[in-house]
Design a protein around this nucleic acid. Structure first.
Lengths: 345, 345
DNA sequence: CTGAAAGCGCTTACAG
DNA sequence: CTGAAAGCGCTTACAG
């Protein structure tokens, strides 16, 4: 591995000049720069990340804090995984890398997140899929380390939140059902201590209100994002007397939506003939089942891009005097029409 | 952020002693070590990764090379994502971190993978989901950098491959169908330039041979791991005259299996009554559909653990004189019985 | 425009 | 058992 010294020798200049030439300092002569760049190319020179990070106090890497209990793996939050792809892509576009930080908060105590991030000198951290109530998170948000959480409503001097426009997505879904002629529209919610779940519920309520629809209590069923809860809620809706039974359901998560569809099938109801279903997230299974699920897709690339750019805004703000966004940064959703509401292709 | 100097001052010893105490060098006195450890705890001291990596020439991090074209995202190889969780977990167990290396081979040329890995001084790299034919991969495998590929059959002085025991998994699936009474068993394969696809096919052929079953040409349909190909192959099987139509299909990937099930439904065949289906991978959707898919599950944690430990074997072998495993390291699969073959719960 | 020198925060021979 | 010193590979004031 060629080091900067080899390169300097090769070019007959000092290491300082090599460094300046490669880092785009304006003072080096065009001729020198060209020569150094060519030699670097030729020798396959790459500056050592560690040396650079050590001397500059930053690493051009961002850390990812992500509690992925194994047992629950992809099962738990399938969407997180596509989020990861979005992040990777967004970082790739700005020439940074992602370090999956493994931190055991239970063993390392409340400063674990922060200390680990500093130890790696990451420029900032992105947080997703973690338990909201950890003191270690507070410690992190309240520090001066740039920090962006996806789907967690947090605040701090250099911390903000990025999330899909869950509310608007829910509104669009309900409007779609209304356009299709549905007037009795129910919902199955996610766990109401999760921000996306409450925003989707709010959007549902808002749309239902704006459209002047009836909303009996039993039209709001509480699930937990997993399939079994969707099934249970679906059974309850299917069990309503026909005259009060909803003709459509907005389900706040695809996995629950599939559960609900199974419940409807078991109750002898046809989807979409007897009851229409819209999900949320657009997980892989949504397009794999029959009838394929109409759903509100999150844009994981947009989310990743927004998260990265919010993070870099903090990083670029050397003095930390720019105020952090006070409300979540929202990313648009998109209604993907398939067969579960009829009206699809 | 407390540095090693602060800690040394606090304890009234030299930085050298602090370093030795914290790194478990045997020569420091128990008393000194205890004192240093306590002070480190108290001040929340964490050694700077960059400084350590710079001086030791290694980083305790492993790099991940993973081509995740965004458009294809989680869609393309859903299993890769759960693999990632397995890797993360396995690394966490050995106290290492994972760096997602973003390398643009097309722009950076054939040494891109290797150069990037060296630049970050990762202890080794894990490769998954990449295009087999890249010259940059060769360059990597043939180098002395420890390197483990998942599901890619590679070789090199310090490179090896880890993969599920695809062959055994296929055999188990076919035996299961045979045990259920099936004698006319077909298969839908993955793309035959992919190692897992050919191993699954070989396992299928082996089992069919051992069981003395007929294997007409049309019982081997070639797919590409995606749903549409599964559908097309399913149609062809369903279109066979009833007397020659298989009563069971071993499908080399879950997504294709779902496609095949749709084809069967469209042809008026009931699964599992008229035709039984076994898939491979156990993607999320497998347990979400109805009838739920019986499938050969890969163990992503085992895969991750095997990959990491193979990698660390290379790393620990300072002189590089231990020969690399010449054949792939195999990880067991597990048949998950659900409803698509009957006989399930 | 360029070079010599200091220094980032560690680890590790080398002395004692 | 411990300390002083060198050095890992860079960047960046400071001179010139």
């Amino acid at each position: 591995m060629a080091g900067i010294k080899d390169l300097a020798r090769e070019c007959g200049v000092s290491v300082a000049t090599v460094s300046r030439a490669l880092n785009g300092h304006p003072e080096v002569s065009v001729e020198t720069r060209r020569q150094v760049q060519q030699a670097a190319e030729r020798l396959g020179y790459r500056p050592s990340q560690s040396a650079r990070a050590l001397v500059r106090g930053r690493s051009d890497a961002v850390g990812l804090l992500w509690d992925s209990g194994y047992e629950t793996a992809g099962r738990k939050h399938p969407f997180l995984l596509s989020l990861l792809v979005g992040l990777k892509q967004a970082l790739s576009d700005v020439g940074r890398h992602l370090i999956l930080l493994n931190v055991d908060v239970d063993r390392q105590g409340p400063r674990a997140y922060l200390d680990t991030a500093r130890q790696f000198q990451v420029d900032g951290v992105i947080v997703m899929g973690v338990d909201d109530h950890r003191p270690a998170l507070r410690e992190l948000f309240e520090s001066s380390l740039p920090c962006v959480a996806i789907d967690h409503d947090i605040a701090g001097p250099r911390a903000c939140c990025v999330t899909s426009d869950n509310r608007a997505g829910a509104v669009e879904a309900v409007r779609h059902l209304h356009d299709l002629g549905h007037r009795r529209i129910a919902t199955i919610t996610g766990p109401v201590d999760l921000m996306p779940a409450v925003q989707r519920l709010r959007g549902f309520q808002q749309a239902v209100g704006e459209l002047g629809l009836d909303l009996p209590d039993e039209y709001v069923q509480n699930g937990d994002f997993f399939m079994d809860s969707g099934y249970a809620c679906g059974r309850r809706l299917a069990g309503l007397p026909k005259s009060r039974r909803p003709t459509a359901v907005f389900v706040a998560g695809d996995e629950m939506a599939l559960g609900a569809m199974h419940a409807f099938a078991d109750a002898g109801l046809d989807v979409p003939e007897d009851i229409a279903v819209v999900g949320f997230d657009d997980i892989e299974a949504a397009s794999l089942v029959r009838p394929a699920l109409t759903t509100v897709a999150q844009d994981s690339l947009a989310l990743g891009t927004a998260a990265v750019s919010a993070l870099l805004d903090f990083v670029d703000d050397r003095f930390g005097d720019r105020p952090a966004p006070e409300s979540p940064i929202l990313t648009p959703t998109r209604l993907v029409i398939r067969q579960s509401c009829g009206g699809g292709r």
